[in-house]
Nucleic acid binder design. Structure first.
Length: 577
RNA sequence: CGGGGUGUAGCGCAGCUUGGUAGCGCACUCGCUUUGGGAGCGAGGGGCCGCCGGUUCAAAUCCGGUCACCCCGACCA
């Protein structure tokens, strides 16, 4: 360690909030270069490489073949699939000296599809699975949490190419199984949840989330086994009812009730002979959407029960890839038929505004909604009789206690870090490029794709988020930068010489050992050993007088004294589990 | 892009209210002592006080502007 390029920090860096960021910087694994851009120092790089190796082994094991594409890419392929515009400001783009457009690859579906199109032409060539471990670039709106969300990051992305849907399902299953093995080997606690496919397009999709309070993703699960990212949760719709015999809609003067709370209070004080709750109201939220790259916005009305807020993440996922924004004052001014606080379905329909409702708003349900003029609401406005929405949308917030869509019980919510994503992409990209194989009947077969990602550099942080204590990091053996951290606690020839011999002997049997031979006080060495988080700490010191050394388990804190004779075998046994 | 905050030595911070030419801890260098839980003493090196402009005899400090970064909300591995 006296020559290891390492400097630990006694204090937390001021800009680090989450544990992984704090500790990876303090323990000398990474250093920040610019927002969302980090350098990997020797310790960090060793962890990163070990994770890469696990990923490689498991990908190779399912028959995927590793290749390496450039990160610097021309515009054309991304133009062909529309992602040059769809990705919007999230791509790093620039021009070369001749003025041609380039980008730094945010993901590589296009290039893989083109590569396969160029090489393969017969049904006999398929199926094939290819992957790479590559640096990706995304100009994130807000990089955060150290290497958890960077603008440059390392990702394993793989793609499967199959002749039919059954083949795709099989490739998907193999990837999913490989991911389970990878994350198990990495020592992670994680959940697999149903997901939205996002900007990549496609259908069947699941995410692997590392369980962590600091995670950016919220997911839900039920005791009965349902699990999904909140963005992908579907709301169970009650059965439609008959509108026969329901009371007629009535407009009421409801002064000063621009909010749901004020409306409910007013109604309950109005002597209508029943009690109202926020759930009985239909809140209409006005948004504007636009296709990426297009200048003009389109109005969109979303109706949902008044006790629910709009979850912008869910809304955006539902409308993807379109952009969405709430209306501002200027927008309201432009459209006088929108009476803020009193918007009802009627004026939306009359003015041709697309109107989507929460799935709970089914035919035959009665609501209190705006009457499209100030200080007025309509009571007993019945869906399917008094208004007809253009469709449903998953935009309402999901709450703990809501029923799971598959009837498996109430949902609970938790947070996680997205570490992997598998999905059946389908033919979006092969259609764009015309990737066909000639079939046995000499007719072309359109290839179908799967796309599978693992955030390799993010995994380092995700593991750290789950593996630390008050003293520092605590790596799982499978990814630790070293197997054994050997502290030389003393300066006598017996101690120093004994420690060096032990280190050499361990090295000879393949145990990777980090020797702290610095001229520092024992306290400093112990503290650094705990901060760095190698799973086994060996202390060679005063015990050497009796021919004994101390072995400490970083995770449990348990120490044992063992004889130096036979220590190599003992430690090698520990390391190999 | 909206809201909050911060820019002073490699890192963490004080100084600013009340202008007088920069300080503390860690880290670093040298010497002596010390060596099982972040050692002691002594001597050192290192700072366009984010940047531009203004006020003033004098600006880290006051005023205006600007840039950067961090944190909280909308994207994704």
């Amino acid at each position: 360690m006296s020559s290891l390029f390492l400097r630990t920090l006694r204090e937390d860096p001021a800009d680090a909030e989450v544990p992984s960021h704090r500790l990876l910087v303090r323990a000398g694994y990474v250093r920040r270069v610019a927002p969302g851009i980090y350098s990997w120092l020797p310790l960090g790089l060793r962890v990163l490489r070990r994770i890469e190796e696990i990923v490689r082994e498991e990908m190779d094991a399912i028959g995927a073949q590793e290749i390496h594409l450039p990160a610097l890419l021309p515009r054309e392929p991304y133009e062909a699939t529309g992602r040059w515009t769809e990705y919007g400001p999230n791509i790093f783009r620039f021009k070369d000296r001749k003025g041609a457009d380039y980008l730094l690859g945010p993901t590589h579906e296009e290039l893989f599809a083109l590569l396969v199109k160029g090489e393969y032409a017969s049904y006999k060539d398929y199926p094939v699975m290819l992957y790479q471990i590559q640096t990706k670039y995304r100009d994130e709106a807000r990089p955060r949490a150290g290497i958890l969300r960077g603008r440059e990051f390392l990702m394993k992305d793989s793609y499967s190419f199959d002749l039919d849907d059954e083949g795709l399902a099989e490739s998907y299953r193999r990837h999913r199984d490989a991911y389970v093995r990878i994350f198990d080997r990495a020592g992670l606690q994680y959940v697999i949840v149903a997901a939205m496919s996002g900007a990549m397009g496609g259908s069947a999709s699941e995410e692997f989330l590392a369980v962590a309070e600091t995670g950016e993703d919220t997911y839900v699960r039920s005791a009965g086994g349902y699990a999904a990212n909140v963005e992908a949760v579907t709301t169970p719709a009650p059965p439609a009812r008959s509108v026969e015999g329901l009371p007629a809609a009535q407009a009421h003067h409801t002064p000063n009730t621009p909010t749901i709370d004020s409306l409910v209070d007013f109604l309950n004080a109005a002597g209508l002979g029943r009690t109202f709750t926020a759930q009985d109201t239909l809140k209409n939220v006005l948004l504007k959407t636009r296709v990426p790259g297009q200048p003009e916005w389109t109005l969109l009305g979303v109706g949902l029960p008044g006790d629910r807020e709009v979850d912008m993440k869910r809304l955006e996922a539902a409308l993807d890839p379109a952009e969405v924004a709430l209306l501002d004052e200027a927008d309201f001014a432009k459209h006088p038929f929108l009476v803020k606080g009193y918007i009802g379905p009627a004026s939306l329909a009359a003015n041709g505004v697309r109107y989507l409702v929460d799935p709970r708003v089914v035919t035959g349900t009665a609501w209190v909604s705006g009457a499209d003029k100030p200080d007025h609401h309509v009571v007993d406005l019945v869906a399917g009789r008094d208004f007809t929405p253009d469709g449903t949308i998953e935009a309402a917030e999901v709450r703990a206690g809501d029923p799971a869509p598959d009837g498996s019980g109430p949902l609970e919510t938790a947070r996680g870090i997205e570490i992997g994503h598998v999905f059946q992409l389908g033919r979006k990209y092969t259609d764009a490029f015309g990737v066909d194989a000639l079939g046995p009947d000499s007719k072309p077969i359109r290839i179908t794709m799967g796309s599978y990602g693992i955030g390799v550099s993010r995994l380092v942080a995700a593991i750290a988020e789950q593996s630390f204590d008050g003293d520092g990091l605590v790596w799982p053996r499978s990814v630790a930068p070293f197997d054994v951290h050997l502290v030389i606690a003393g300066k006598s020839e017996e101690i120093v010489g004994g420690a060096e011999d032990l280190a050499a002997a361990l090295d000879a049997v393949g145990v990777r050992v980090l020797v702290d031979d610095r001229k520092a006080s024992p306290g400093v060495k112990f503290a650094d050993a705990e901060l760095i988080g190698v799973p086994t700490i060996v202390i060679v010191g005063r015990g050497m007088a009796d021919g004994r050394i101390e072995v400490k388990d970083r995770r449990s804190g348990e120490r044992e004294e063992i004889p130096l004779v036979g220590a190599v075998e003992h430690l090698a046994g520990l390391v190999r589990g």
